[in-house]
Deep mutational scan, measured.
Amino acid sequence: VRQEELAAARAALHDLMTGKRVATVQKDGRRVEFTATSVSDLKKYIAELEVQTGM
């Protein structure tokens, strides 16, 4: 499950970095929206997932 969450989070980051205004991911069973202003929060979430998956 964590691998899927990590892939979704990375895709969301890619979307935001390429101009999409809002990206949505499932985080702990709930839907979370990230915007360009919350990229740093999304990067932290990705880092947490990488630690949890041993990457």
Rank of each mutant, 00 (worst) to 15 (best):
E50S: 06
R2Q: 11
A47G: 06
L16G: 00
V39S: 04
I46F: 00
F34C: 04
K20R: 09
A9D: 00
G19E: 03
T35V: 05
K20G: 08
Q3C: 13
R31C: 12
Q52V: 11
T37K: 10
E33Q: 09
K44Q: 11
T35A: 05
K20T: 08
A47S: 10
A12G: 03
H14W: 09
E48S: 08
V51N: 13
D41G: 06
D15K: 11
T18R: 12
D28C: 10
V25P: 01
E4Q: 13
M55C: 11
G19S: 03
A7S: 09
E50M: 09
K27N: 04
E48F: 14
D28K: 04
A9M: 07
V32G: 03
R10S: 03
E5V: 09
G19L: 02
L6Q: 01
A12Y: 02
F34R: 01
Q52A: 13
Q3K: 12
M17K: 05
K43V: 13
F34M: 03
T18S: 13
L13N: 00
K27D: 03
V22S: 13
A11T: 08
G54D: 11
R2C: 11
G19V: 02
M55V: 14
V22K: 07
K20E: 06
V1I: 13
E48W: 15
T37M: 11
G54L: 07
V39N: 01
V1A: 13
R21M: 14
A11S: 09
E33H: 07
A9N: 01
L42P: 00
E48K: 07
R30S: 08
K43R: 13
A47V: 07
V39W: 05
L49C: 02
G19M: 02
G54A: 07
Y45H: 04
A12V: 03
R21S: 13
D41T: 07
A23N: 02
M55I: 14
V25W: 02
S38P: 01
A8I: 11
T35Y: 11
A47P: 00
H14F: 09
V1D: 14
Q3Y: 14
K27Y: 05
G29P: 01
A7W: 12
A7K: 13
V1M: 12
E48I: 09
M17T: 06
T53Q: 11
S38K: 06
L13C: 04
V25G: 03
E4W: 15
K43D: 03
L16M: 03
G54V: 05
K44H: 07
D15F: 05
S38W: 03
D28I: 02
V51L: 14
A36I: 15
E50Y: 06
L6G: 01
G54E: 10
S40A: 13
T53F: 15
D41V: 08
A11I: 08
G54I: 07
A11L: 11
A23K: 02
A47M: 11
Q3P: 09
E5S: 08
A11N: 09
S40K: 10
K20D: 05
A11P: 00
S40C: 13
Q3I: 14
M55N: 12
A9Q: 01
E33F: 08
V25H: 02
A9E: 00
L16T: 00
K27V: 15
V39Y: 04
I46P: 00
A8W: 10
R31S: 12
V25F: 03
T18K: 10
R2W: 14
R21L: 15
F34P: 00
F34Q: 01
T37N: 15
L6T: 01
Q52L: 15
K20A: 14
L49D: 01
R30A: 08
T37E: 15
L6C: 03
Q52M: 14
F34W: 05
R2D: 09
D28V: 03
K20Q: 10
V39C: 07
L42T: 00
V39I: 15
Q3W: 14
A9S: 03
G29S: 04
L6P: 00
R2K: 14
K27E: 03
S40H: 12
V22M: 09
T53K: 06
A23C: 06
A11Y: 04
H14V: 10
K43L: 14
A9V: 03
G54M: 07
A36G: 06
Y45P: 00
H14Q: 11
T53S: 13
T18I: 08
V51C: 12
K20L: 08
E33D: 08
R21Y: 06
R21Q: 13
Y45T: 02
E50H: 04
G29R: 03
K27I: 15
L42Y: 01
V39L: 15
A7D: 11
H14G: 05
L42C: 02
G19R: 02
G29V: 02
R2N: 10
T35F: 09
L49G: 01
E50A: 06
I46V: 05
K44S: 09
K43I: 14
V22N: 06
V1H: 14
E4I: 13
A9C: 06
D15H: 07
A47N: 08
E5M: 12
L16H: 00
L6D: 00
V39K: 04
Q52K: 12
A8E: 12
R21F: 08
T24Y: 15
A7L: 12
Y45F: 07
M55T: 13
M17D: 04
Q52N: 11
E48G: 05
Q3S: 12
K44R: 13
G19Q: 03
T35M: 05
A11K: 14
M17C: 09
R31E: 11
E50V: 08
E48Q: 11
E48T: 07
I46S: 00
A8C: 14
Q26G: 05
R30G: 06
R21D: 12
A47K: 11
M17P: 00
D15V: 05
E4H: 14
D15S: 09
T24K: 05
M55Y: 04
A7V: 10
D41M: 10
M17A: 05
A9H: 03
K43N: 05
V25S: 02
A8Y: 08
A36W: 15
L16S: 00
R21E: 12
R21N: 11
L13Y: 07
L6W: 04
A8T: 07
R10N: 05
K44D: 09
G19W: 00
E48N: 06
E4C: 12
L49F: 02
T35R: 04
S40Q: 14
K27C: 09
M17G: 03
E48C: 12
A11M: 11
R21H: 11
D28H: 05
A23G: 05
V22I: 10
H14C: 12
T53M: 15
R30N: 09
K20H: 12
L13A: 01
R30Y: 09
K44A: 15
S40E: 15
L6V: 04
T37Y: 07
E4V: 12
S38L: 06
V25R: 02
L13P: 00
V32F: 13
V1N: 14
H14R: 12
K20V: 09
A47E: 11
V51G: 11
S38T: 14
V51M: 14
G54F: 05
E5D: 08
G29W: 01
A23L: 02
A47R: 13
E5R: 09
V25Y: 01
R30F: 10
L49Y: 02
M17S: 05
D41H: 06
V39Q: 04
D41I: 09
A9L: 10
Q52H: 10
M55L: 12
R2M: 12
V25I: 15
L16P: 00
Y45G: 00
R10W: 06
D15C: 10
H14P: 00
V32C: 07
V51P: 05
E33W: 07
A11V: 07
R30I: 13
T35D: 10
V39H: 03
L42A: 01
T24A: 13
G54K: 08
T37I: 09
A23V: 15
H14D: 07
Q26E: 12
A8Q: 12
A7F: 11
R10I: 10
V1C: 13
E33C: 11
